[in-house]
Design a protein around this nucleic acid. Structure first.
Ligand SMILES: [Mn+2]
Ligand SMILES: [Mn+2]
Ligand SMILES: [Zn+2]
Ligand SMILES: [Zn+2]
Lengths: 142, 142
DNA sequence: TGAGCAAATGCAAATGATTCTTATCTAGGT
DNA sequence: ACCTAGATAAGAATCATTTGCATTTGCTCA
């Protein structure tokens, strides 16, 4: 299944990056490959510590950051109180439901182009990242 | 001048909203009408406490939030460590320079329209706020 | 004008996410 | 089996923001 592939991919990539395969890292990897995308550190920590009680939150924080550095995850600032991490590495944007908190992916191919048209306002500034914060009520919460 | 107009407007509106004209509130109003937009609470607190030394940070936090509730300010989450507050109430977006931290306003009239075209992905979800998060290097930092 | 009351304030302690410190441990190579 | 760089647990530290509470103060109305 997809989960196993994801897990194997994570293990493989982490080996490449020189990350040691510690049991706590394995638990985190597995949780990530089973979880939905857009998790918070705390969500991962809760699940992981259930099966590995002596796990420290700092370890999860550290591991998630390392994975971002290694390119296995993307860090998302969706405006909430805590950061989220995305296993979907494709270029995309997000919609956050203010009722239930659900995060939906959005693929907006022409936003970049649209921006270019308005770039004049920025003079010689160079845009490095463009990301859209959409909030509202999702289909189930309407 | 513009500053005085802004100050008068703030005083007038706050009266309408039933906010008492305390000296600390007056200082905060004046600072806001003189400062550039996109200030942090701390920036306001620094300036304000210079002329009103017994001022408490909590008071500034509370006042800024009240002004947001009263529609005199907009709260901006620009991704930095602290919130920013905008005295510009027009619909607009922001570009943040990652070098110097400068925040520039951007007016993108057709983003909304462009979004509508892509709304299909969201099903019956209702978008309440759309805001664009742009980062890069500003004209002076290139 | 002044009493009364809700609103506002200052202070300090609480919060919550994240990071840092430090002593201890261990995975993986030799 | 042994060594060592890297990893961990535990908890202290940080930092922005919020909150509880005792006290003060604008403002309204008699
Ligand atoms: Mn995503
Ligand atoms: Mn602005
Ligand atoms: Zn929802
Ligand atoms: Zn700059």
């Amino acid at each position: 299944m997809t989960e196993n592939n994801n897990l194997e991919k994570l293990v493989g990539l982490s080996k490449e990056k020189g990350l040691k395969l510690t049991p706590q890292r394995m638990v985190i990897f597995r949780i990530l490959s089973e979880c939905n995308q857009h998790v918070t550190v705390d969500q991962v920590y809760q699940k992981a510590s259930a099966e590995y009680p002596m796990l420290s939150p700092a370890t999860v924080y550290r591991n998630m950051e390392q994975m971002v550095d290694a390119g296995l995850l993307t860090r998302l600032d969706l405006g909430g109180s805590s950061m989220r991490y995305d296993t979907n590495l494709e270029e995309h944007h997000h919609f956050v439901c203010t009722e239930c908190g659900k995060v939906s992916d959005l693929y907006l191919e022409d936003i970049q182009y649209k921006m270019d048209a308005n770039r004049s306002q920025l003079g010689k500034a160079k845009i490095n990242s463009l990301d859209l914060h959409l909030q509202g009520t999702c289909g189930e919460c309407v």
